[in-house]
Design a protein around this nucleic acid. Structure first.
Lengths: 124, 124
DNA sequence: CCAATAGTTGAAAAATTGTTCAACTGCGAA
DNA sequence: TTCGCAGTTGAACAATTTTTCAACTATTGG
């Protein structure tokens, strides 16, 4: 086998440490996993969505109440909730015309608290 | 006191449950915290950066080796590393012309593994 | 000191993402 | 069954982010 190559390599340089590259490459997860992870973290990568999640961390809420609390339109909230729903981060229950959203599991809480931990520890 | 208002309210609706809104609003963290959190998670919200972090999760690496492994240019890798460095997610050490990057602490590992946990549990 | 290579930088271009707007659905009350 | 309100939707627009490119710095070896 020739030198270790990557499928669509646009790298503009040579391998400097072939042993390290081989070691790492063997352990690198499949590409679709990193894609799914990135897509998941995109949901946490927006201030409005973080605040929305911080709301739901406290109490289930309907779209209108979230919109007023965050100072954004119902439409924007609805779009965000739709994205969060697609990734099973929130769930909802309908009560008449009103739909209450809440967090689907504890992962949001865990991710946010590790994020906060990092922010606190990396301040100096 | 008049109805609960928000500083720059572009909400296109009324509060439906004033008690819930008050309860949540009192507990909502300050705005700069959600901004910092969102900015932190932005670093995890890109497939290339996730793969880069997955590399460093395995072993410290230099810019060239990362570029070849991921199939992107040195420049792109350098930009990503710069962003990660600014948030204290990676650190580096120089050895001659070569700069080895590694993870600055265990937060990356924790965040990625909770992300993976969520992905596994939300598949059905 | 000069050449070669590792890495960085900033600005422009390309790609992605968030918000807005207007029209729409669904539910309940009258 | 009609009206009003809660919420959704998709497309257009605006804003942001990622990649690329070319020029740059830093370090080593000759």
């Amino acid at each position: 086998m020739a030198k270790t190559e990557h499928s669509a390599s646009s790298a503009d340089c040579q391998v400097l440490h072939p042993d390290i590259v081989d070691y790492v490459r063997k352990r690198l997860p499949e590409s679709h996993i990193s894609l799914n992870l990135a897509n998941l973290f995109k949901l946490f990568a927006d201030q409005t969505r973080i605040r929305l999640l911080q709301c739901l961390l406290t109490h289930e809420m309907c779209v209108c109440d979230i919109a007023v609390t965050l100072g954004v339109t119902k439409s924007a909230v609805s779009h965000h909730l739709h994205a969060l729903k697609l990734s099973n981060i929130v769930r909802f229950r309908r009560e008449g015309q009103v739909i209450f959203y809440s967090l689907a599991d504890e992962h949001v809480e865990k991710i946010v608290s590790i994020g906060l931990e990092h922010l606190l520890e990396s301040e100096e």
